[in-house]
C-alpha cells in the first residue's frame, strides 16, 4: 500500500476522488449503483479506454498524438470496403485488419517524426488534417450503414435480468480488457516497454545507452495507431454505422482523461490504471449528472470545470506539506 502510494501518487489521488464521487452518487440517486447502470457505463466507455491506453504509450515515450481519433475513422471506412471485397470476414479478420491498418497510419507518423526530426505535435496535427481532409473528400461525408452483420450485431458476453432491466456486458468491454492487459504487459513487463519509459524520461541518456530511437517511435506510434484502429472497429459495432465526422474532436477529450490519470506531457510517466481511472472519472461525472436530472447541455461544462480544478490542485503535493524542506540545493 505504501509502495503503491509512492509509485502512483496521482493514481491514488484519483482513486480516492472517484470513490468519494461514487459514494456520493450512490446516496444521491438510487439508479447509480445498479448493475444496469454500471455495465452500460462500461459498454459505453470501452472505446475511450482503448484509445486512452494507446495514447498512453505515446505519452510515455515523450510524444503526443492528435491524429488517432481521425485515424480510427479512416480505418472504419477502409474496413467497410476491405470486408466487402473479401466477402464478409469475421471478428478475427476484422481485428487483424483494423489493427493492422491503424498501425500503418501510426507508423506514418513515426516515420515522419524520426526520419525528418519533426516534433510529434507538428506531425500529428499535419496528419490529422491530411487524414480528415482526404477522408471527407473521398467519401464526400457519406454515412455507411451496410456493415457486415457480424460487425454491426451486438455480441453479448454476459447478461442478467435485474429489477431495473437487463444488465449486459458486450464485446467491446472484453476487447478493452484485452487491450489494457496487453498494453500493461508491454509497458510494465517487456524490456521494450521499459525502454519506452527510459526514452520518454531522458532521450539523450537512452540514446547513449544504445536504445534505438527509431524503433521506440515506431513502437509507440504503431501501438497507438493499432489501438486507434481497434477502437474504431468497436465504435462501429456500438453505433452500427460509419460516420466520417463521428470521432473528430474525441482526441482532445481522451488526452485530457489520460493526463488526468497521471501521464505526463513530456514523457516517462503514466500507467494503465491511471488511464482507466481518468476515463472513469469523466464518465462517472457525466453519468451522475444525468441521473441527477441535470441538463445534458451542462455535462461538458461541469467536466471541464472538474478537469481545470484537478489540474489546479495537482501540483499541491500533500507529501511536501508534511515533510520539512530539504536542506541545501536539490
Amino acid at each position: 500500500m505504501r509502495n503503491f502510494l509512492r509509485s502512483y501518487p496521482s493514481e491514488a489521488k484519483l482513486l480516492v476522488v472517484l470513490l468519494i464521487l461514487c459514494t456520493l452518487l450512490a446516496f444521491l440517486t438510487p439508479d447509480f449503483l445498479t448493475l444496469v447502470n454500471l455495465t452500460s457505463l462500461l459498454n459505453n466507455n470501452s472505446v475511450n479506454v482503448i484509445w486512452a491506453v494507446g495514447l498512453l504509450v505515446v505519452l510515455i515515450a515523450g510524444g503526443i498524438d492528435i491524429s488517432f481519433a481521425v485515424a480510427a475513422s479512416v480505418v472504419q471506412y477502409i474496413c467497410v470496403y476491405v470486408f466487402a471485397a473479401i466477402g464478409g470476414g469475421n471478428w478475427a479478420i476484422g481485428l487483424i485488419v483494423a489493427g493492422g491498418l491503424g498501425m500503418s497510419l501510426g507508423l506514418i507518423n513515426a516515420f515522419l517524426i524520426h526520419q525528418f526530426r519533426i516534433i510529434s505535435i507538428v506531425v500529428t496535427i499535419s496528419t490529422f488534417n491530411a487524414f480528415f481532409g482526404l477522408l471527407m473528400f473521398i467519401t464526400s461525408g457519406r454515412f455507411l450503414y451496410n456493415l457486415p452483420s457480424w460487425w454491426s450485431k451486438a455480441v453479448y458476453l454476459w447478461e442478467k435480468e435485474t429489477p431495473q432491466g437487463w444488465a449486459d456486458i458486450r464485446l467491446p468491454v472484453a476487447v478493452m480488457a484485452v487491450c489494457m492487459v496487453a498494453t500493461w504487459f508491454l509497458i510494465r513487463h517487456t524490456t521494450t516497454g521499459r525502454q519506452l519509459y527510459a526514452f520518454g524520461d531522458n532521450p539523450e541518456g537512452a540514446r547513449r545507452a544504445g536504445i534505438s530511437i527509431g524503433l521506440m517511435q515506431a513502437i509507440a506510434f504503431g501501438w497507438c495507431g493499432m489501438m486507434a484502429g481497434i477502437a474504431g472497429l468497436m465504435q462501429a459495432n456500438i453505433t452500427k454505422e460509419v460516420v466520417p465526422m463521428a470521432l473528430i474532436g474525441r482526441e482532445l477529450d481522451v488526452l485530457a482523461a489520460v493526463v488526468l490519470g497521471g501521464a505526463r506531457l513530456g514523457g516517462g510517466r503514466g500507467s494503465i490504471l491511471g488511464c482507466f481511472l481518468g476515463v472513469a472519472l469523466v464518465a462517472v461525472t457525466q453519468n451522475g449528472l444525468n441521473l441527477l436530472g441535470v441538463s445534458p447541455y451542462a455535462f461538458k461544462m461541469v467536466v471541464g470545470a472538474i478537469i481545470l480544478l484537478a489540474i489546479s490542485t495537482s501540483n499541491l503535493d500533500l507529501a511536501r506539506l508534511v515533510t520539512p524542506r530539504r536542506k541545501g540545493r536539490e
Partner: peptide
C-alpha cells in the same frame, strides 16, 4: 549529466 532516468 549522469544520463540516468529520473522517473525510474
Amino acid at each position: 549529466d549522469l544520463a540516468l532516468f529520473a522517473e525510474m
